[in-house]
Nucleic acid binder design. Sequence first.
DNA 1: TAGCAGGAATTAC
DNA 2: GTAATTCCTGCTA
Length: 327
Amino acid sequence: MSMGSPGCEHTGCTAPLHSPLYISQTHTDTMAWLDEADDIKPPRSLLGLPELSWPGVYLPCYDRLALEESPWVLRMTEAPAPAAPPSSTPEPNQAKPNQPQDPPSGTEGQVEERCLEQVQTMVVGEVLKDVDTACKLLNIAPDPMDWSSMHVQKWLLWTEHLHKLPQVSMMFQELSGKDLCSMTEADFRQRSSQFGDMLYAHLDIWRSAAAMKERCPPEDSKSADDNSWSDVMRNYPSQPIHLWQFLRDLLLKPHNYSRCIRWLNKEKGIFKIEDSALVARLWGMRKNRPAMNYDKLSRSIRQYYKKGIIRKPDVSRRLVYQFVNPV
DNA sequence: TAGCAGGAATTAC
DNA sequence: GTAATTCCTGCTA
């Protein structure tokens, strides 16, 4: 990753590559994500774009955040550049939709701008939701300034896991959230020359999200996948959490956690643990049980058999369980 | 070998 | 008291 990159040559935006929110033209992985993300994806037709050529919208979901060598970057927290220069003789009601080679008319430009704004809003919402989920799962405050050194370690371990980083948390021991926030990017790079900038960027995301939450609290943070059975999850981070709730929370965030746990049949509540070690480690992090493993976690799941919360499906398969009362 | 099932004791809240 | 953890034996794919 080249941290000294000037930013977007197309838009002239000079935002650094690690800006919390940015658009990438080439992020094919995100394209796949967008194809899957039916719950937040605006219709491509609404954006006036052909199928599969939506300008790459980078959503910083925590297992998708990857920094690129030379992405087309646009800082989303800043006003996007106009899609096209305004027409010298604007005729908003006389658009010619059958001439695709023409530059967009004023109306089309406004529509595109509105669409971009919608995408921005959507992206920011996703960031807030992802941060919120991580807070729940880690039992930490959303604002890094409030973190103790243990919270910092949790966050670092979490980030290591989600981005498959080597152990970087060792480099940041004994640091509180305030310490972390007072560090410059250079300080981060000094502690981890290879991943310091990436961690700094992640911290920046969290700080931005905390600031955004402070500015516009939180009635719109109700996500589309919220529902009655997740109400009990809303009182984080101070509330204890049951294992079944934790699993369900992971399942309700397939964009982030599908590589470790996913629904096989959501209607029937059947799910599969794809990465037992990772799920166990996440659970251990959440409960401050560093010795947690899948053997112990699965024993806890089996305790649910008697309680009628989780059971094995009728056709029993390894690592597959079923909520007795699905959504 | 990893996962599954369940007993029993212990721990944390 | 409850939920979860820890440790265990034995079984299965």
